[in-house]
Write a protein that binds this DNA or RNA. Structure first.
Lengths: 344, 344
DNA sequence: GTGAAAGCGCTAACAG
DNA sequence: CTGTTAGCGCTTTCAC
């Protein structure tokens, strides 16, 4: 009655206060070029004073975009979600979302039913403008579904093939290579590896790096020194137990979490790292620095990967899908105590 | 031309196919009672055949609800987000969201700017129907803001006072009490504690449980045996280093993550747990079971807390805010090796 | 460069 | 119990 600020703020209202039309305000809000500078500034002024924010629902109904992107974690890898890797990835993702006024929705599928039901909902509706999917087992159907529905997406980690798929990843072959090379330089010859699951590209790439490093130094690959892990601590523990009878001098473990399990297996039977066996991990999770002994490990910039994935996704949203965005960043070998050391 | 399934599916379209009006379809979709069974079934049939899903944007524009809830992690506790506690909490939350066709958005604030900007956006717009906030430092302004804006919310962990605030929590006083009592039963007398930050209710409650247990057994509280931690591994490490000169026989640590740091401090100077000092943690994170030695700890049902928070929030959304929903669940003492043991 | 007008797909009175 | 009718707040042609 005496104060119109009680009215809900709408474009209309801002238009009235600025003495222009609704369309003009919309243009200003959306940065459309064709608005006279004077007018633009007046409108912006009003928007600031009223601290007006456009209604996202109306926006996504009228326009085509929701301002939301999704992070999809399929059931197949849900058990990995508790790995410290994920919180860091999400930190990177949200940081970039915050910077770009985008919102992140989290889709964790627990059951097949979830996966079915929600996937449909997400894919068919314009609920999200695009999604980020973390690395998947090779040939996981999700990729194809996303492709079919033409929902823009960026994968964190590398897809198996599909030259169309956008991704951000580290060079896992090189990362593993650097770790194993370092072990060789230190004088170890009988070097084993606990791999990531072979049905993942990271599993394949890190194994390849291991093999390459051995080959390049003229060391032969002994299949009995290659044991499969499953990304989990327990998996690392079990793998190490299988490895122990083969008496490796050093082990390159495909992830820090598994390396922690491997350390536990060694400790349990009284073997001392690195005196009795050297260990190198992968990821450089926070726990790697405080394990016993501290882990030498291949650092990957997890937060940055998350942030980069978002940036690429938004770029695709704004500028179209071609060419595919494919970013490969480098790793860094962090040398701590678990690999032993010898003076040069 | 020959196949109308190419048309975008709308309420209108479903109505046409089922030979009813748009409103009727809407009623069926929203489970409004007043629809004849025969009609209802016919409509449902069509919906199934076409696998129609209502447009969430239109829905939230016309109706009042977005079908989205938020998980808010303010900057003040962002550094805790990497704690394994969070992934588990999110698993519980998403599980419950999935079951109720709700979507979770994640709001991680990294900077003050974020906090300002996004909080405004979230709070003022009907972007989310409600939010879940994880435990906050006492008197964190977020609570008041949410209250003022009347955005429904449920806190995981206990608010400082506010009888209006909905929350789910465990009985931390009792949890700590059970841990310390157990140490006393084992024969320890000189029992220290590494606390959670005192500006949190969990810090206060767990400390209270510690004090109560000592008092009830006629043991006096020695302030030099109470050291503050900050929830982090490093914090636990530093706290233990301060504690060591006072030679406690046993330490009740306010969280597993800190307990891990405490173990590291002891290991570093060659003290053996539990022979030289007994340790009990809190949370029962996965890493507690595989630490060296495995941690005796107070288990809280983190996933369940998350799921429960969502259920309460949705209940509030559907049935109004009164009475406040306040759920307190119990903890369970998990006895492993770090506390030592004596035959009865 | 700016305004008018037509929806986006749905919910919610209001009639009947 | 069901249909008709207004919008929800915004984007977007299309004129001017």
């Amino acid at each position: 009655m005496m104060n119109d600020s009680i009215n809900k703020l709408t474009l209309e209202e801002i238009a009235r206060l600025a003495g222009v039309s609704r369309s003009t305000v919309s243009r200003v809000v959306n940065n459309h070029a064709s608005v006279r500078t004077a007018v633009r500034e007046r409108v912006q002024q009003v928007i600031r004073e009223t601290s007006y924010h456009p209604d996202p629902a109306a926006r996504s109904l009228a326009g085509r975009r929701s301002g939301i992107i999704g992070l999809v974690v399929p059931r197949a890898i849900q058990f990995l979600f508790t790995d410290p890797y994920y919180p860091r990835l999400m930190q990177g993702i949200t940081q970039s979302c915050n910077n770009n006024d985008y919102i992140l929705s989290l889709f964790l599928f627990h059951t097949e039913d979830d996966e079915q039901k929600i996937a449909t909902r997400v894919l068919r509706n314009q609920l999200v403008d695009g999604v980020i999917v973390s690395a998947l087992p090779i040939d996981h159907p999700l990729v194809e579904q996303l492709l079919i529905h033409q929902l823009p997406f960026v994968m964190v980690g590398r897809p198996s093939d599909s030259p169309e798929v956008n991704f951000v990843d580290v060079d896992n072959v090189a990362g593993a290579y650097s770790a194993v090379s370092h072990l060789i330089c230190l004088g170890y010859r009988r070097i084993a590896t606990i791999t990531c699951p072979p049905n993942t590209t990271v599993g394949q790439h890190r194994r390849q790096g291991y093999v390459n490093a051995l080959n390049d130094r003229g060391l032969s690959v002994d299949e009995s020194l290659i044991v499969e892990g499953d990304f989990t601590e327990q998996g690392g523990y079990l793998a190490m137990r299988r490895l122990i009878p083969h008496r490796p001098e050093a082990v390159f473990v495909g992830s820090d979490t598994m390396a922690l399990g491997a350390l536990r297996a060694l400790r349990q039977i009284g073997l001392v790292v690195p005196r009795d066996m050297a260990i190198v991990g992968y990821d450089d999770l926070p726990s790697a620095a405080v394990s016993d002994p501290p882990l030498t490990t291949v650092r990957q910039p997890i937060r940055r990967l998350g942030a980069q994935a978002v940036e690429n996704l938004l770029d695709i949203l704004n500028n179209g899908p071609y060419p595919p965005r494919r970013v490969v960043t480098t790793t860094e070998l962090i040398i701590r105590e678990s690999c032993g050391s010898k003076p040069d």
